[in-house]
Design a binder for these strands. Structure first.
Lengths: 200, 200, 200, 200
DNA sequence: AATGAATGAGACTTCATTCAT
DNA sequence: AATGAATGAAGTCTCATTCAT
């Protein structure tokens, strides 16, 4: 006997809509988009099946909405605050922590998994990468004592972004502590490299 | 009008089996496992639908077989040969090229996409990562003129592996040339860092 | 040209579900469970194929539901009323007629055919047999003038139940009239035996 | 890797044929005809799949052959020997034992299960029933001291055949000992009835 | 705005049977 | 006489989506 959904007096408007998106985010991340039936989304959201299609014309549009409305990383409002003058390595690690704090783990999983198939995800990823690169350059510039050529700064940022993304995505099955320890080491190497390639 | 398959008298042995695996590899990489119907595999392999299940009891087992039989990266038989004494940055870039040459791009795409859902893929990825880390350490040791503490070498390798994987996987939608240019820069930073953190 | 089903707005509640069970009952009885495609059930029920699985998650569950919901024999509400004092043979024949009237022929066919393979059917059959045995004992006790030892009554009931089941199941391919004629003879023998083994 | 069947030097001719029939008999009895794939028959017979169709043009013909060649009950060669003058009840129980000894349990299971769908099985069952009826009459006539009218003898035989078939088929899920105990009781009732309805 | 029965295309898989060797 | 790869029709089941209420 299917659990009747008592006519939800829709506390705040759009309450159901949010529940649907929440459910979809969880399920898409856990099983993948293709392997998630809309019926499962409705069940987990505790709304009737029909309501899903009332809010979203297609299953695809649930994904699109998720990508559009739920940032994988909140824009950092105080990049300068992350800098630690004279200790760029610490600053980099801070940056990773701040980004990790701000974002939605599930959304990142979804974005990468679906990037091959859904242009919106691909596009989002491109933007994200560029943003990370810029922020990293900023943090390094504000923290490193020396002047480095733009190209060197860029390469350092590329290395660090790769390390962060690797830790978050590729190494997502490893223990969190191990990943952070690895990141510290990489930060040291990158900033040492930055120092060596800068003019005093 | 369905293309009748004239009874293919198994020209070479295992010919059909190979065709099926080839087709699956291509399609899984292009659309993802879930989005690839077994019928599409049969069509692309130019074998009748039933034959797919003659060789592989389930769709899942096609994926498992692919992961077991088709290495994402051939083991490098001459790691030492990649070293360039005194020029570790060049050596690193060589390493990336060698790995890229040896492996199957499609398999890598598949492995990462399905890692969340298929344990076999996850396991394979773990092994791959460890292998890359080891090889990178070897190459650096053989190329760098100075003695670096093990921890530093490890961190450098971690950084480089992250860069290679990033370039191959995360940045797979960018132009190939751009990615290689980026890798060169990262190699320079990493080796500079290695030098700075080593004892002369 | 596939018969489009105009969207049947569930006239009476559970209407479609009943149609599906009806169709399944007929077809399972006629061809057997294994030989009945779910598509045939849908066609006969005049519902779209998908609806069958909306109501029943698996084909097996259609059978289980049938066994659970559709009695092969209605419980007799007036056993005493079947008794004919002094004429136990007549009473026995009455009993058979009453049971035959109350029950669903198709369900019995299904139950016996699937008993080897479906535990639910086997269990149901066991219960049915015990019920028939009890009812027969009651009818005999109420109709026979003499006092018979419990063991004798039991054996008479066993004989009669065997005869009824044989007539209904094993001899189901013979003419109905022949079977009834046979039953009358058996009733006479059994009650004569009962008389002979009773104390006056 | 499929178990290669070493080219059986076909010890006695028809060895494979027998193995196939044996396997089919077991499997049809256990799972039913429809639920038994020809591949399973080949596997259990330890012959290659193709060989099944070398000996039998269709799956159906395996069943037909089984029914034609493998009697569910061997014809009793010494019916008279079963009689026990003056103790018809004992004689009846002897008869059941003799029949049970002679026959193939599996074949009986198959025959009843497939009777609804396969005419050959139905026909065989009809013949079997008639045979049992005749033999029972013979045994009773040879054992009972009194002369009974033919109709009474017939009814007694019908009752006994029903009891035997019930015990063998309908009660096949009960304990064997219980069934035999029941049969003894029924034999007593039937012979008592026979006595009561006979003229001295 | 909300609901859940209804719909049918299509997915994976099974299997009797064929046939070149 | 024997073999096992090949074939395709058909079966069970899933699911996005529609729609009357």
């Amino acid at each position: 006997m299917p659990a009747r959904h008592r006519r939800r007096t829709s506390g705040a408007d759009g309450e159901s809509r949010k529940r649907i998106l929440d459910a979809a985010e969880d399920l898409f991340a856990a099983r993948g988009f293709d392997a998630t039936p809309t019926a499962a989304i409705a069940t987990r959201a505790e709304v009737p099946k029909g309501l899903v299609f009332y809010y979203f014309p297609t299953k695809e549009s649930i994904l699109t909405t998720l990508i559009a409305e739920r940032p994988s990383t909140e824009p950092l409002d105080d990049v300068a605050g992350l800098a630690v003058t004279g200790e760029p390595a610490t600053a980099l690690v801070n940056l990773d922590a701040a980004l990790d704090r701000g974002g939605r783990r599930a959304m990142r999983t979804i974005l990468w998994r679906e990037a091959d198939t859904h242009p919106a995800a691909r596009e989002h990823l491109r933007t994200l990468r560029a943003y990370l690169q810029n922020v990293t350059v900023e943090v390094l510039r504000a923290s490193a004592p020396l002047t480095a050529p733009a190209r060197v700064l860029d390469s350092c940022a590329t290395a660090w972004v790769a390390a962060m993304l690797s830790a978050a995505h590729i190494d997502r099955f490893r223990e969190r502590d191990d990943r952070i320890e690895d990141l510290r080491g990489v930060a040291r190497v990158v900033t040492a490299g930055l120092g060596a390639l800068s003019t005093p």
